[in-house]
Each structure stands twice: as C-alpha cells, then as structure tokens.
C-alpha cells in the first residue's frame, strides 16, 4: 500500500539538510512501529520517496514523502504514531492512502507556492504591490543561471504562475517546481530586484514553502489531494 505523508519543517529544523531529513524519517518510521516495506537485497532499505528537496535555511508547511507499507490499521493511527516520535520543528499534517497506480511524490510535483517573509521591517520597495504587478506584466523575465559548470540564460516568465505582495513585509508566489522547469524563489527575487532597482539581501527574508502541487486535469492541486 502506498502512503503519502504531509509534514511541515520549521524552527531549528530548517538547518537540517535533505539527506539528513530522510535519515530522520527512516528512524522515525521505525520508532513509530510502522510496518514499512523494505527493498530486497543484502542491506534492505525502506521504500521512500520525497517530493522535492528543501534547501537548508528554508521552512515549509507543505513537504511530502511517500512510503510503502505491508499493513496498517488506519491513516489516523499512523498519523498519531508518527506525531509521537517527531521533534520540535517537524509536524505531521496529514497521512493519506494513494491509489496503487499513483505516480510517486517526486515525479508528481508540478508547482510550489512560497511566502517570502521579511525578518525585520518592510521590503525596501515603494508600492511593492504595484511593482510586483508591473514585473509580472513584463514580456519576458530574463535570468542568468550560473552553476560551476555552465551559464544558462532563462526566461522565468513562463514559470511564474502567481506573484503578489502580502502586506508590505511579505511576498507570495507560485512557481514551476517540476523537475524540468524548477524555479527557486530566490531566482525570482533576484530578477525582481534588478527590475525594481533595489537590493534585498537573500538573508533578509525567510522563505516558507506553503504548498506543493501536482497537476490534475489542467489544474494545480495539493499533493495530498490526489
């Protein structure tokens, strides 16, 4: 049976990297006594898939992980069992049973929404809401992505589905998060800064992932709504 678990990550847990979160959950699943399915072979491991890695420093209210179990009583029991073995900074939000033919969490991801909350004070932008609107109305939003190996010119426009101010100290956005066109919120902010002619250091706002979405009949729906 395939199970999808939705959880949040915040507080000091934002310093725990993706691989360590996987290790944390592997141990938590054992502590919770869940009858999880293991792979074959000499050193079997739990069958587990995370929707998308969350970078160190980011918080989330919509992380997803799939596991397979051999048996279970109810999703409610499993949720409670997991909740009992968590630490401060990780909450189990929901546990649901997936249809057998469902794609795994990682392959399902299409988009993600974020809140970029200033840590102190307002964003140093006059008329933040209007500026964001004007930015989103551009024909193209060029962005140069530099990695150690390459420099790629991107157009972010296609992948930004929503972008708006939330008061004067927060910005909300929904962007492409699929494996082919993933956009990081920091990239959007960089592009916006050069458009608005302001400087907003990456450390001055907290990025909180609000939800992870999949595409269902041409609509974005949260990953636990399939």
């Amino acid at each position: 049976m395939k199970i999808r678990i939705k959880f949040s990550k915040y507080g000091t847990m934002k310093y725990i990297g993706h691989l360590d979160m996987m290790r944390f959950f592997q141990k938590a699943i054992r502590r919770a006594g869940i009858d999880v399915k293991y792979s074959e072979g000499f050193s079997p491991h739990q069958i587990m898939s995370f929707a998308a890695p969350l970078g160190i420093g980011m918080e989330s209210k919509g992380e997803y992980m799939d596991i397979e179990v051999c048996s279970m009583t109810s999703t409610q029991d499993m949720k409670e069992a997991l909740a009992r073995v968590m630490v401060e900074g990780v909450d189990i939000i929901s546990v649901s049973v997936l249809p057998d033919n469902a794609k795994n969490a990682m392959a399902s991801v299409a988009a993600a929404s974020y809140l970029l909350q200033r840590k102190e004070g307002d964003y140093p932008v006059n008329d933040l809401a209007e500026k964001l609107q004007a930015f989103l109305a551009l024909e193209a939003i060029p962005y140069t992505k530099e990695t150690k190996k390459s420099v790629v010119e991107l157009n972010l426009k296609e992948g930004i589905y929503e972008l708006a101010a939330d008061g004067s100290n927060a910005i909300r956005m929904m962007v492409n998060a699929s494996s082919s066109g993933n956009i990081k919120p920091g990239m959007v902010m960089e592009a916006f800064c050069s458009f608005a002619g302001v400087e907003i250091p990456a450390g001055s706002y907290q990025i909180i992932k609000l939800e992870t979405y999949t595409e269902n009949a041409h609509k974005f729906v949260p990953l636990d709504a399939v």
């Binding site: 000091t12 847990m13 310093y15 725990i16 990297g17 360590d20 141990k27 938590a28 502590r31 160190i56 420093g57 073995v85 630490v87 401060e88 900074g89 450390g203």
Partner: peptide, 14 residues
Amino acid sequence: LQVEKPARYIGNEV
C-alpha cells in the same frame, strides 16, 4: 547558514 554542518550546534535531537 555560513558554517559547515549547522546541525552540530543546534541540539533538538531525538
């Protein structure tokens, strides 16, 4: 966010 392996310094372990 600047140091290697911040998990060394935050406590909160199970």
